[in-house]
Design a protein around this nucleic acid. Sequence first.
RNA 1: GGACGGGUGGGUGAGUGGCUAAAACCAGCAGACUGUAAAUCUGCCGCUCCUUGCGGGCUACGGAGGUUCGAAUCCUCCCCCGUCCA
Length: 371
Amino acid sequence: MPFRFEVLATDPTGARLGRLTTPHGTIDTPAFMPVGTAATVKGQTQADLEDLGVQILLSNTYHLFLRPGHVLIRELGGLHQFMSWPRAILTDSGGYQVFSLSALRKITDEGVKFRSHLDGSEQFLSPEKALEIQIALGSDICMVLDECIEAPSTEPCARQAAERTLAWARRSRDYFEQHGDSDRQMVFGIVQGGTHADLRRENAAALVELKFPGYAIGGLAVGESHSVTCEMTQAAASALPVEKPRYLMGVGKPEQIVDYVALGIDMMDCVLPTRSARHGCLFTSQGRVLIRNAQYARDPRPLDENCGCAVCRRYSRAYLRHLYSTGEFLSVILNTHHNLYFYLDTMRKIREAIRFGNLKRFRSDLQERLK
RNA sequence: GGACGGGUGGGUGAGUGGCUAAAACCAGCAGACUGUAAAUCUGCCGCUCCUUGCGGGCUACGGAGGUUCGAAUCCUCCCCCGUCCA
């Protein structure tokens, strides 16, 4: 079996230490997946990412479908070969674009009609089409197309989206059984349900009957408070099988991630470290640093004295500020490198804390420092 | 010496009688960013006072006078810059 998920240890909080095996290597969980929407993590080479210890990257079905096209990528040997990434890849289905491109789309039970943000052309994504594209891309983990809604949303509205997502999950599974290869790829179903705990539980339970090899929780961190995100995560996770990996989509800040891990989450992804880096917001052991702030202009210290990354070992805050304020390319590169290191290093420490059963202590220390 | 053109807030630069403490952009200062339409977006950006309000006072469009209820905008003189002619 090329795919395998093992829970190696659990922490009193409920956190799980695990290992997910894929044809492109194993992933230590809880894992953070950097986002490389357009087959690139902006500002980092694949060699950089390997050096950082990234075991799995996220990329995007919808964006790659529009450009350069999944057929072209298949011709060039699939996404791994195309982008020269030897480790695992998870592709998001385009479900998030249903949310973020809401002004440019129309949803029916059949699928989603998009007006391309690139050239205005009309595009259509159905659950089957999203899988067809992901099969062509060859990602290790495919996501079913889902309907992600904003928060807050009314119960009927959330229910409609959740039920549609469930129906789409069934169609996705069936399509993959017919056209996919489970030795090569796995498909995760996605729980929806807005900010309604009962609906989350109900939707998760129904999804589990479809027997996916892994489950994602979607539609969170889209406007609701962190405590509600946790409550919903808890509600959904409680209905998921313990032996399958759980992926909380699109989160979060470092101090939030430990909370999700404590709720039994195994995988997460977020644009925060990469996007914030480009915007001059850097994550450190003492909290966030806006490197453009005047107070760093003459600061000879490393960004984070407790950080072992290549950037902190070599450059000063004053230099990083200079690069940012002059708009130099190197600013994006160094900032992104540091932020990803910080996230991945935090995950390493989280895994270690779970191994020793003291995540609770680790969490309160981390949250105290970062608040 | 003469003829034109021009001098606006830290910079570039709109504005040619009231809606102008003065567009826009840049610089500066601060904030946001959560399955990436994002190397983006937002706010502040003359001084000052308080009862912090689409509040009051003061200063401001090269300088000094003047016209007008009202001037960055019109008039006079002066200073400076650019181009051209001697």
